[in-house]
Design a protein around this nucleic acid. Sequence first.
RNA 1: GCGCCCGUAGCUCAACUGGAUAGAGCGUGUGGCUACGGACCACAAGGCUAGGGGUUCAAGUCCUCUCGGGCGCACCA
Length: 460
Amino acid sequence: MSARDTIVDAVSRALRDLGYDDAGVTVAVERPRDATHGDVATPVAMSLARILKKNPMEIAERVVSSLQVGSDVVASVAAARPGFINFRLAAPVLERTVREVLEAGEAFGRTNDGAGRRVQVEYVSANPTGPLVIVSARAAAVGNAILNLLDFAGYATQGEYYVNDHGKQVEALGASLGFRLRERLGLTAPGEALDQYQYPGEYLVEIAAEVDAGQARAWAEAPDAAALGRFAAARLIDRIRDDMRRYGARFDEFFLESSLHPTAVEAAYGRLVASGHTYDEEGAVYFRSTAFGDDKDRVLRKSDGLPTYFVADVAYHASKLDRGYDRAIGLLGPDHHGYVARMQAAMTALGAPPDWLEIIIVGWVRLLEGGNPVSMSKRAGEFVTMRELIDDVGVDVAKYFFLMRRANSPLDFDLTLARKQSDENPVYYVQYAHARIASVIRFAEERGVSSAGSDLSRLT
RNA sequence: GCGCCCGUAGCUCAACUGGAUAGAGCGUGUGGCUACGGACCACAAGGCUAGGGGUUCAAGUCCUCUCGGGCGCACCA
């Protein structure tokens, strides 16, 4: 039993002996803010004070005096000012902990808490209509870190990228590629009427160059926006995979939205109707998401008979449920926070357990250079893509900067700082600390001093 | 107009989800350092937690109003 558990047990027993246990408070254990107070502390006397209407300090003192705990675990206990109970751990506990840390090495902290539980993390999932941009690099850093943490805690994890390769945007992408093909074949003046196309980016010129000559001519003569779009999307997905591999973000699956159409989408629609939480109005079919805390009800089937995009997304999340994940975590951009409530509503309606779907909003990223925001336009020399970012500052620096902040808060990514090799750059600071420690150990070994952790008999 | 997120040292951020004197790094100031990478070390100054009111033993944290910033409010995808 850990020292922490021993202390919780002892305090609980003391509360029982004093007749305080019927108040129903849980014994919380925390680290004191100030280490001079002790190694661990519990504010339980203060929680009790509220319920029992008694002086917290008095309760704390009574608990301390009736506390029975082995001296091999706790060296001293004291009640302190407002009503904290502070513990100082005994030397054997501290020594044992140090030994455990050294012996476990890199595995220290690994647990089996999640054994037998499967968790899926869906992240990035940017549309395959262009190269990945900065926010995707942040989402990739956060999502992959979550995967790593869950792995470390013993969960069986799966990383997934949801690819929106279906619908109008793919056709618009195909139309834009068709223009670049005609441009390549000299059938149209370069750049003419480019503004009519939704995706004017240069990357489609590259992709147009990858179409073999025969196919290019066929498509130029008889444009098939859907087929062109699929071609472009497939090529863009290849690039995305490549970026993610270089970045070290793990994706076990690229799940294609197109695989859900039409069967799974219709099935999801049917399940929602069968759940009884739908109704008809003015020729459209609505999902009563307000019954699950959403702001307003959502259209599932438009009056023209077609399902909305939302139904496809329900179908996708339903597939996660069907695939047997005990929990699904999804990362979304900040502009999608309005989407969370309806998705959770749908999953609840489909019978998912409470909290089965957790959505993490990844905050905005603003690039700064020399203290000024870098415009996100495509002018030469400015960063737009994830690849350009990691080519400039490196994968480690990029990840560190993204993980420095709480995931959902807006982030200013200071390029000037990220490039600096000085104390001001926290990444450099960490790397330099590592380099110095390594060289101190090397020096010690040259002088015949045993390296850290090799002698466990003198931990005192 | 309605809803969500946010406002903490000069700067960038923490604060274990309601606990003790609000902490770190950078920057600034002062003082040090001949075995190892001076890209170091020690100490210090710096705060009405945007502002008002409330809840309680206790509020940066919860409620409410005001100010300021961001985003969302489609039979689009």
